[in-house]
Design a protein around this nucleic acid. Structure first.
Lengths: 249, 249
DNA sequence: CGGCAACTCCGAACATCTTCGAACAAGCCG
DNA sequence: CGGCTTGTTCGAAGATGTTCGGAGTTGCCG
């Protein structure tokens, strides 16, 4: 059996059966557990299933509404702080959807800046802060991500300009393309890049090697990257080679 | 069974109220009580349930943002309820800024409707509700009123349509003109009226005789008024004479 | 009502088993 | 041969069960 065919059957088994164990799959397809793990890792990278210990589960569309549990919060907090340091008083910044960018917003408290965002968590965070001019893009509410998407948001961005756009991402592909997992968010990200003088990407070290299903842009569209990954990291080094300014958090 | 799958089932059981005891769950999934405790602890850390002695409970979202000082809240609550009764399932409604209109939003919970609003308190209220399609107008945030105003909101309204617009007001002048106190909100109200099939005004009895500084529109632009003022009230009677439908809360 | 004992429940700590992924070696095929 | 896939090994990390001291709850008695 061809590897690609086996991977497709594994994906079917996981999706239809609700879950499947590594041992069970290895036995079913008569391959080693290591091979199943590699298949599952690849399918997980492609966002087609969710890897869990012992096997895999179908990708779940229910990120808990209360985003209380943020993964890798310490790293994201440091990245947010470093990104906030790039903003000068009086500037206008665009803040993308995501938990990393939310950390950026938390570090803008008390700063005299204008924030443009479709991130409802950022709105809640900065609403009490009288120093900050807050502009909300319109759009349809996506509950799972607390974001606004759609035509209204894109139209609004066409009428706005900013000094810098801070974007998040699902992952950085090996060819340094910025990837996202949700297709409706991509036009917003692209519109933000077009409306801002500079584009700064916020990614924690785990994002290198991860990937989403949609390509947002190539590294040439980025002006800077804020990350906690060491400069020696091959992905980071490649970005620097591509001319992207590196800010270490 | 995979650990992740078990945790998922435990969460379902707790949320649906089938069972919540540690001993019972341990027996159901054939694991030790310690393992159930660890699962519950993890789910509690993630904010998905509330740990209690002997088991777990579904997380109850407290009403955090009860507007600390809403004047005439009982009247507004009744007006909101009566206004919500005017909405049919599947309809699209626009909800204006204000505390009375917020009460309307509270009575839309669980209804299968589309809500278009620039009222951030309404967004917070309806965000957790999966039945409701929520559309946010863009704009600049006005902190004092938790609202969005400006060009972006007006542009967005020009691209939208609704079955009914629910408006608030600062007062009803003696000549029955609808008055507002903040000039930046008036273009939004007018745009909502233009974009909706019907316009319904929500005013408590105290609004008759009060006035704002800006005239929004005359009574001819109103299709209905929801109020707690008695029909014998001279202002209400005059509205009826002017051809406005009266809904008594 | 206050105090006390019995019971239950909790979570830390430890030992054991399972699972994971990196690294290397072997096999396959153009 | 060189690239790709697969299998094996192995140390690290995760998951589970058991034990045990301590905290919370209940109920009884004075």
């Amino acid at each position: 059996m061809l590897p690609a065919e086996r991977r497709r059957l594994i994906l079917d088994a996981v999706v239809n059966g609700h879950s499947a164990g590594v041992v069970e799959l290895a036995s079913r397809f008569a391959v080693s557990e290591m091979t199943v793990r590699r298949d599952l890792a690849q399918l997980a990278r492609e966002g087609k299933l969710t890897r869990v210990r012992g096997g895999a589960m179908r990708v779940q569309d229910e990120p808990p509404f209360t985003q209380i549990a943020v993964e890798r919060l310490p790293e994201k907090e440091r990245i947010g702080r470093a990104a906030a340091a790039l903003v000068a008083d009086g500037q206008t910044v665009m803040v993308d959807v995501g938990t990393t960018t939310l950390q950026l917003a938390r570090h803008l408290h008390g700063r005299r800046v204008t924030v443009i965002t479709s991130n409802l968590a950022v709105v809640d965070e900065l609403l009490p802060d009288p120093a900050i001019e807050l502009v909300v893009l319109g759009g349809i509410v996506r509950r799972n991500y607390r974001s606004l998407v759609g035509m209204l948001a894109e139209d609004a961005l066409r009428q706005l300009a900013a000094d810098v756009a801070f974007l998040g991402a699902s992952g950085i592909r090996e060819d340094l393309a910025v990837m996202d997992s949700t297709i409706v968010e991509v036009p917003i990200k692209r519109a933000m890049m077009a409306a801002a003088e500079r584009t700064v990407l916020l990614v924690d070290a785990a994002k290198f090697g991860m990937r989403g299903s949609v390509r947002v842009c190539g590294p040439d569209r980025l002006d800077a990257v804020v990350t906690d990954a060491p400069a020696a990291h091959p992905g980071v080094d490649a970005l620097v080679q591509a001319g992207v300014e590196l800010v270490h958090a």
